[in-house]
Amino acid sequence: MRIVDVNEFYSPTGGGVRTYIDRKMAVMADMGHELIVIAPGRRDWVDDRRGGRIIYVKAPGMPFDANYGLFWDAAPIHALLDRLAPDIVEASSPWRPAWIVGKWQGSARRVFFMHNDNVAAYPMRWFERFAAPEAIERSFAWYSRYMSRFLAHYDAVLTNGPALAKRLTARGVRIDGAMPLGIERGHFSPALRDERLRADLLADCGLGPDAHLLLGIGRHHPEKRWPLVIEAVRRASRSRRIGLVLIGDGYERRRLERLAAGAPNICLRRPMYDRARLAAIMASSDALIHASEAEPFGLVASEAMASGLPLIVPDSGGCAEVADRHCAELYRARDAGAAAEAIGRLLNRDPALLRRAATVAATRVRTDVEHVRDLIAYYEALLPRRQRVAA
């Protein structure tokens, strides 16, 4: 089967989407399928990979994030789709790509794959001080109606997990199925825990090895709510010795640096592309803390769980969906005080029992192979019988 993904969110310097697609391409290749990504780039060029390729089409950059581009012209994308003759075409951006793929005249099955919730990520955050969540939802019902118009052109509408499916269905958006993502579980393991590395990370926070080490990983973007995490750690640190290491980057970095100023127990680190090193840091920490209730799936939470790392996460969103309650504390979303209390609850647990529960949970994390296998089975069922046999 040949799948073409017209993906505005793919970038060679991107985060979760790039990681997901690169791994998905490799897994599909192992299963005998081909994945080709059409992505915006600064110039036209092709990056050949095992089992597929990334075709970059020259496009304007995103105004507020130089890592990404924006599609506008349909002609070059339609020409590529005509030439590639895919079995399935995927789209995930609700802006121009949704219409470009939806109105392409080819015979392939079209699938819209929902990776994010723009209402939760933006207006719910922008206006939370002025109105209740229900009122904000009602005010932005027009966005759901807009999505329904382009989704009418698609054969199937999928989400990357149950959290997003529940939200969108509640708004009246058509959802045909949830395809929970998975991770490369073998890359992460509780066995990678390194007490010397843990001590070094705590030393960077000005603390000794008897302190607690919390880890935060993600883009420095407002929807991640890192200021809430910093405030929660400040509050929790009044009664215990806690170090926080935040790994990531983005246009909010300077703000986070200002918020962390004067708090030597909070250490900001640049993104880490050495996955073996990152896996070791995960396994060597005491808990992962996250604050984005807009997270549609929670890949980083799954990676942390596969590393044997307990979670401190909000009570709504993708991280809450994947959290194992035996080794996690949930707190009221958007509430720094509740997050501080959740930190205290987790650190008050028996460390040996908590670590044992987290080690068991690590073996249950969904894998990317399981995700791709389920996705391929769904796509094969969409194809006409003759095409299915050929695939």
Score class of each variant (00 low, 15 high):
Asn348Gly: 14
Glu303Pro: 11
Thr363Ala: 15
Ile312Asp: 03
Trp99Glu: 02
Ala260Val: 01
Asp249Leu: 09
Ile100Val: 11
Arg332Ala: 14
Arg234Glu: 04
Ser107Ala: 09
Arg366His: 15
Gly344His: 08
Arg253Ile: 00
Tyr56Ile: 06
Leu197Val: 00
Ile289Lys: 11
Pro271Glu: 04
Ala98Gly: 10
Glu184Tyr: 00
Pro296Ser: 13
Asn348Lys: 07
Arg240Asp: 00
Lys103His: 12
Ala301Lys: 12
Arg332His: 11
Gly308Phe: 08
Glu8Pro: 11
Arg254Val: 02
Pro227Asp: 01
Asp324Ser: 14
Asp324Gly: 13
Ser93Val: 01
Pro76His: 11
Ala391Val: 02
Gln387Asp: 07
Val157Asn: 07
Ala391Phe: 03
Gly69Cys: 11
His33Pro: 08
Ala377Val: 08
Arg238Cys: 08
Ala338Gly: 03
Glu231Asp: 06
Ile266Thr: 03
Phe140Leu: 15
Trp126Ile: 01
Gly318Cys: 02
Leu197Ser: 07
Ala120Phe: 06
Phe64Pro: 03
Val372Ser: 15
Ala336Gly: 03
Pro310Arg: 13
His115Cys: 10
Glu303Trp: 10
Ala377Trp: 05
Ser316Tyr: 02
Ala98Leu: 05
Glu341Cys: 00
Ala108Tyr: 01
Arg235Met: 03
Lys224Thr: 04
Ala232Trp: 07
Thr169Asn: 15
Ala74Leu: 04
Arg235Lys: 11
Asp350Lys: 12
Arg270Lys: 13
Asp350Gln: 12
Gly243Gln: 04
Asp194His: 06
Arg240Gln: 05
Leu244Ser: 02
Pro296Phe: 00
Asn7Leu: 12
Pro190Arg: 15
Gly106Thr: 02
Asp117Gln: 06
Asp204Glu: 15
Tyr331Trp: 06
Gly218Val: 01
Val389Trp: 09
Arg277Asn: 00
Pro310Thr: 01
Ala59Leu: 10
Thr13Leu: 13
Ala377Asp: 06
Ala199Pro: 00
Asp44Ser: 09
Arg196Cys: 05
Ile55Leu: 15
Trp126Phe: 10
Val360Ile: 15
Ser107Thr: 04
Asp30Val: 00
Gly61Ser: 15
Gly262Val: 02
Ser292Thr: 06
Ile217Asn: 05
Trp99Met: 04
Pro97Trp: 05
Arg49Glu: 08
Ala59Gln: 11
Ala132Trp: 10
Ala85Glu: 05
Trp226Arg: 02
Gly172Thr: 05
Arg238Gly: 08
Ala59Glu: 05
Ala211His: 01
Pro63Met: 13
Ala357Asn: 11
Pro60Ala: 14
Asp194Ser: 10
Met147Pro: 04
Leu192Asn: 06
Thr13Gln: 13
Pro86Arg: 07
Ala338Glu: 06
Gly218Trp: 01
Pro94Met: 14
Leu288His: 12
Ala340Glu: 01
Trp45Thr: 10
Ser284Asp: 02
His78Arg: 09
Tyr154Ser: 11
Arg241Cys: 09
Val157Tyr: 05
Arg185Pro: 00
Glu293Phe: 15
Ala381Glu: 11
Arg167Ile: 04
Gly106Asp: 02
Arg356Glu: 09
Lys166Met: 14
Met31Lys: 12
Ile77Met: 13
Pro384Ile: 01
Ala163Glu: 08
Gly308Lys: 06
Ser239Val: 04
Arg185Glu: 07
Val4Lys: 10
Ala390Gly: 06
Gly177Ala: 10
Pro314Gly: 07
Ile55Lys: 14
Pro264His: 09
Arg171Met: 05
Gly16Gln: 03
Ala178Cys: 08
Met272Phe: 07
His371Ile: 04
Val6Phe: 09
Ala339Asp: 00
Ala279Pro: 06
Ala342Tyr: 05
